[in-house]
Nucleic acid binder design. Structure first.
Lengths: 377, 377
DNA sequence: ATATAGAATGAATCGACCG
DNA sequence: CCGGTCGATTCATTCTATA
């Protein structure tokens, strides 16, 4: 191989863009105007929760909303929060690729507003994921249950977008070979991971644990993907993205956070390509036609195949079809036919005999795939 | 005691009402018109989830999943679902007592709409509680995380209603003396608990486990309270309410569900009063005025109290106030004053000397409470 | 009768690709 | 955009049939 590779070259190089792996300073909606349509693969958003508004929120006409607490103004607050939410979600939606997905984290204070806005804007909820905290803050007054979790909503851009990334096999492997559930257990961000300023005070009030972001990105992105965080804060998304070989782009208004995040991310060592290789399933493997098994000589026409319990039988024909009961068709169609089902995976249903025992023809497909690999692999 | 008590008399007898412990047949909003304002203590609602399923789903073994495709779960649009939600929530709010609370259970399909409507109508969210399922259905296509939980929202009628029932100590005791968290683990409803018809088919597609309802009612109701379930279904709420010595009222449209629920509830044996006694903390214990400690002779005026480390001192006065540093006031106020704090629990802060060691005056309160108990207790 | 294996089932928004 | 075809995919528990 004489091709020179750059150090740290990412598996799927994104187009050169001035904004890639940077933090854009400014208001979320305004700053996102600097990004083109369909330019990011995944969005992770940790929007402000505070419905008391404290100068954080503006009405669509940019007038400030007073922080007040009687009932009518509470309603006003919700209205203002909804307007704020719709505005940033719309800006995010424009820059999200058609097969992109978005994560939003929140608590009961704001997550219902966020979920409603997501649905109203056409996003399609894939899961709500619960972050169960191992060490949540107690309820000091003893008037409620200990608030021991936060909620993340994971949604695709459109209902019909089926091509989003979900690393199912990797998630399953990471969970002792059981499907990854919608409730995740992680400690809150403390200790060395928690950014502190020169006074020892925490830099950001709601810094999220890197483990949480790591699972989010491992589940829903591929190496080289671009991850947008519109409320970048202390830069957890950027730090984890860099470590995992993903690109990031952040938006943040406060210079103090930008400074802290920039230093933090600069210190991150990206993992190597080998560590980043993601477990993939059969879906990702090259497709093999059944006829090629015959063409390669692994199966001879006329061979009798049966199911694992020898209840059904079929004869292999030279054209790659099976014949049984006076009927013929593909391995899948005939597998379904003999069982009286609508569908069947012929690769795993039909077996051939070798050394007195039955083996699935999927074994032959595996051998074909071996032969297809380049010599040096 | 010569007062004759009826067998099974409830500790807090509700007013005689024709609708108490019955199922009202009809549409939720219309049927609730038969209840007066402020007539129920707690509402548990399991509304349609608006699942929006399209094609069939098969398991990997090609068996078909029995989907929730009932007519009552079909809505034209999110807008139609929101209108439905607001209507039944408003009807519920009218009949809910000022210090009442409401629980609504849902999934990501509908819970964001419900939460938004609750907030918009003036309910005040106290917690969102996650029901983690021990045995959820898998995600058969491997395209998402296994949907392993449902969400319950617990809300008070108004932001300012602080007098709602929360049996904090009972919940804590039930959780190995740790605060009850917002994530609960229960199996789904199967086996003998699951109602079946004469064909062996499930009576209701979404029957909830009794353990879930039991925790809800133990947490947020007192014996004798009235619990409304506006989507009564197979009557889990009624069955658990009866077992726990609470009154219920249900609303249900379909006669088949009403019949099944009626028979189910008739077979329920209520627990006895002793089993129902809720572990209560200091909050619910009879209030003791400090002056009664003096009146009862347990402390004499002029006694010097100090904090546990003898840093501060105060003198007991006959009127039940403390004097220190030329100032005087309640045990709480003086505890705060000497420490320079805004608040202080005087019962645990101030100590008296007995046999050479310091004991908190809370010990004297405990003795007073002992004396207050009836002879037979 | 008891033990074991196989079947059934639960609030589910559950493809990709080619022509 | 539609239709046809390939072929990928499940966990905990209970119930039922068989040995």
């Amino acid at each position: 191989m004489s091709v020179v590779r750059k150090v740290n070259e990412l598996p799927q190089a994104a187009p050169q863009s001035s904004w890639l792996d940077t933090i854009l300073k400014g208001d979320c909606v305004a700053a996102l105007e600097r990004l083109p349509d369909y330019s990011v693969d995944v969005i992770f958003a940790d929007p402000p929760y505070n419905l008391q508004l404290e100068g954080d929120l503006h009405r669509p006409d940019q007038s400030k909303v007073d922080a007040v607490d009687d009932h009518w103004d509470q309603f006003e607050s919700f209205q203002a929060y909804d307007a704020f939410t719709r505005a940033w979600l719309l800006a995010c939606r424009r820059v999200l690729k058609p097969n992109g997905t978005i994560w939003v984290i929140g608590s009961y204070h704001n997550i219902f507003r966020v979920g409603t806005s997501l649905q109203d804007l056409g996003f399609w909820v894939l899961n709500d994921v619960i972050w169960r905290k191992t060490n949540p803050m107690p309820n000091f007054r003893g008037r409620r249950f200990q608030n021991a979790h936060e909620t993340m909503i994971w949604a695709s851009r459109d209902q019909k977008a089926k091509g989003y990334t979900f690393n199912y096999e990797a998630m399953k492997a990471a969970n002792d070979d059981l499907q990854m559930r919608s409730d995740w257990l992680f400690p809150i961000c403390t200790g060395h991971e928690r950014l502190k300023d020169e006074n020892g005070d925490k830099v950001h009030p709601t810094q999220k644990p890197e483990a949480l972001l790591a699972r989010v990105l491992m589940a829903s992105t591929k190496p080289g993907d671009v991850v947008l965080d519109p409320f970048f804060g202390s830069g957890t998304t950027g730090a984890v993205a860099k470590r995992l070989g993903r690109h990031f782009v952040g938006v943040e208004r406060e210079q103090a956070y930008i400074d802290a995040a920039t230093a933090r991310i600069a210190a991150v060592e990206p993992l190597g390509k080998a560590e980043l290789t993601v477990m993939t399933g059969k879906r990702a493997e090259p497709r093999v036609a059944f006829v090629s098994v015959i063409e390669s000589g692994l199966l001879r026409p006329g061979t009798v195949l049966s199911d694992a319990r020898r209840r059904h039988a079929a004869i292999v024909r030279a054209d790659g079809t099976l014949a049984a009961n006076g009927d013929a068709g593909s391995i899948h169609r005939m597998g379904a036919r003999v069982q009286g089902l609508d569908a069947c995976n012929g690769w795993t249903f039909w077996h051939y005999e070798e050394a007195g025992s039955l083996k699935p023809i999927d074994e032959l497909r595996r051998q074909i795939r071996q032969q297809m690999l380049p010599a040096g692999a």
